[in-house]
Write a protein that binds this DNA or RNA. Structure first.
Lengths: 195, 195
DNA sequence: GTCTATATGAAGATAGAC
DNA sequence: GTCTATCTTCATATAGAC
């Protein structure tokens, strides 16, 4: 896998993408958001950037590889947030993570659901160790050590709440700032953080 | 469309499915949950029930029709909950709806996300008037008349929270009863209902 | 209600030229 | 880094027999 390599500490170390790879990842990202991963063909991606399928295959050896690269790119942003959170200690870490994550989710509205709900992405995330370790690292901040059922359900609720909150038809017309502050308020309540 | 016809009041009036149609819908339902709609072929559906593709096409004239039938079947359950809620008045209506919806979501865990997050289903729900009217009816109970931005965001959050809460990897091992009570508690908090 | 057989196209993927 | 050309497999969909 070229797009993300393991690291001792659950840190993703993604590639220096070439310009050509970046164009593909960017186009794929947009199309995945509109059609889902299975609903997006390499032909669609190639058409979107004005090249042929073969050109795409020169950069990535399979469609799974493209999905992996897109996913890793998305997680990079999350990783920065996680790094910042881990630099804090105690409940403050969770607070910092939450704020950053909400910001990211609102700004890249349609992607949030992909990562969590697209069956192809879910499968890849579960199968590739670097991703698994990264997710574990994320939950370590979000949940207390040895957190019980209640905390786990709360964390699950929070992650889905976030996805829906930013892409649901009901919030189509809502501006980013309003959305951020509302979502932050509700997710804080879910995680039992002080507002 | 054979699988759902309009009604003056946003009520879906689905077909008397034949036994053959029911088998197809049931198999498709399971496969959609595992692979998503785009990731499920009619061949997979046919194989699952031990017939040929042609047999499936005899019952439904296109794949969209199968998706429509599956979706309508899922919404039928929601419709019963909605009927019950509308029979109540005031805040009690919302309370009743919430309890029923949580029950349904927990019991059919993997479907909740399909209806809200699968791009194909989302498209079909938006394009077919009976569905659009039904969803409007649903929101009428969930939200107050002329509800503001805050209530809309809350409703969106709630619907996503529900999906994630019942299918997130974090809650894989949690039993139905625990999940129901936790989800109910949190969603009540989101909607500002008394617990 | 299900079958075989088939049409037509698009999917993922590769070889080799420029 | 991109192309044309090609392969194979699979997709949706139809015709017509049983």
């Amino acid at each position: 896998m070229r797009s993300a390599t393991p690291d001792a500490d659950g840190r993703l170390t993604p590639v220096a993408h070439s310009a050509a790879q970046l164009r593909i990842v960017k186009a794929a990202y947009a199309l995945f958001g509109q059609h889902g991963v299975s609903g997006t063909s390499l032909q669609m991606i190639a058409d979107a950037i004005g090249v042929t399928k073969a050109a795409v295959y020169h950069q990535f050896k399979s469609k799974d590889d493209v999905v992996l690269a897109v996913t890793a790119t998305e997680l990079e942003e999350l990783q920065d947030a996680l790094d910042a959170a881990e630099a804090e200690s105690g409940p403050r870490a969770r607070e910092v993570l939450l704020e950053r994550v909400v910001d990211i989710a609102v700004e890249r509205r349609h992607m949030a659901s992909l990562l969590q709900f697209d069956p192809v992405v879910v499968r890849l995330l579960a199968e590739h160790e670097p991703f698994v370790r990264f997710i574990e690292r994320l939950y370590r901040v979000l949940l207390d050590e040895g957190a019980g059922v209640e905390a786990r359900v709360n964390a699950a609720i929070m992650s889905g709440a976030l996805s829906a909150a930013v892409m649901h038809p009901l919030v189509q017309g809502v501006d980013d700032e309003t959305l951020k502050s509302r979502v932050l308020a509700v997710t804080r309540r879910i995680l039992d953080l002080p507002s």
